[in-house]
Design a protein around this nucleic acid. Structure first.
Lengths: 223, 223
DNA sequence: GAGGGCCAAACTGTATGCAATCTGATCGGA
DNA sequence: TCCGATCAGATTGCATACAGTTTGGCCCTC
């Protein structure tokens, strides 16, 4: 798991995960061990171990003697992932309101104010990067490794379906306004308010996704 | 993952996980591949794959070229697991209030009423079994596979520290009273109430654990 | 006596080989 | 023409072998 001096297995695990998340390996695709091995110039052994490791994350499904396939998710499953993420982020926001240190609160506020400028600037890419950092700050501010890890995993899994969201007209400034409500509640120590505000914020993302996905497909990564 | 026709790797994974959860493999213990292999009469390959699979669940830690050790958790980390579980259960209860079907609601009520009888009967073991089923019903009633799976994983990881809880005097009937508040809120569709009631309920379990753990140790399973 | 470097045993990481199972394609029968 | 059985190729599961790294101890030096 440590990134320093990674073994082949770990490099393969991240490579395969990336390929799935960026769409190179499409959902339902069969992951052949020998092909993957040749493709990366290694033997089957580290490939097998990498696949074994990825099963637990829900990115691929393995059935005994039938190999691994990229997890296929129905529209319903993807929606449930979005709901889960909304709930997790809301929970983290709630805990932030209760247990963020003064330093963390000041940093959160500073980060939010910087994003307000970015929003009015209108650069979707910079805002998107800052947005990821903002939500990560919420995860870590909850001071709970288990919750943070799960929330991060969910965010990664729904990531591919969120890419275009900030291109939608007005989404950028509206996102910032929603952040404002979240930050204010957290700084005020208002647990219930932070929960509600974050739930509202992330649920709107989900709505944006649904409006978007009706045009595209119904089959997507994640278990 | 399928339990039918399990491969050696899967059998080993569950065997090792069980050994960790029931304390046979103590936290911090180094899991030697050849020893495990000989112990189960297999080669190192399936052992390695099983260990690889268990890393993601947080039950063991692997460092490159240094092998696997049973995850050691500080008191702080265990407490954070309890907090995470409380939050997850509360979230599930919230979703139950919003999205349980009429049939599920009736079954939940029936289950709760049966437990009330068990509580007055005073049999801790039967009540404990029913309690697990009760909470599982909450997980599934949330209608969200990702949340349910995570909650179940957390419950398993904190399981070893909860065993004795129902032996504590009065805990059994108090637990049932807390369940009553949860069930009532869910049946009434009171999302915030269900959340608060469940959070209160599971947090009390945490308190019971802390009172208990002061007498025992500070090092326990889970990452 | 303490500290540091060197060496060997142990262990992990990876490759390869073999056996067992699955897949799907062909052939025979109804 | 359709359905089921059989067989070969492909693929997975597991064992074994070898190379590189880590670890612990011993010896030498200060």
């Amino acid at each position: 798991m440590s990134s320093e001096n990674p073994t082949l297995t770990e490099k393969l695990a991240t490579a395969i995960a990336d390929a799935i998340l960026d769409g190179t390996f499409e959902p339902g695709m069969h992951l052949d061990e020998v092909s993957l091995a040749q493709q990366h110039g290694v033997s089957r052994t580290p490939v097998r171990e990498a696949l074994r490791q990825l099963t637990t994350s829900g990115l691929i499904d393995m059935r005994p003697r039938r190999g691994a396939v990229v997890a296929k998710a129905t529209q319903e499953q993807v929606e449930s992932l979005f709901v889960a993420m909304a709930e997790m982020e809301a929970t983290c926001a709630r805990l932030c309101a209760l247990s963020m240190t003064p330093v963390e609160r000041r940093r959160l506020q500073a980060r939010h104010e910087a994003m307000t400028k970015l929003a009015s600037g209108g650069d979707p890419d910079s805002y998107s990067d800052a947005n990821v950092a903002f939500h990560s700050a919420i995860y870590s501010g909850a001071h709970n490794a288990a919750l943070a890890e799960f929330a991060l995993g969910l965010r990664r899994r729904v990531g591919p379906f969120r890419r275009a969201q900030f291109r939608m007209e007005g989404r950028l400034t509206r996102s910032n306004q929603e952040h404002d409500a979240v930050v204010r509640a957290i700084l005020a120590g208002d647990a219930a308010g932070a929960h509600a505000a974050m739930l509202h914020h992330v649920s709107l993302v989900e709505d944006a996704f649904e409006a978007f996905s009706y045009r595209t497909a119904g089959v997507l990564p994640a278990s």
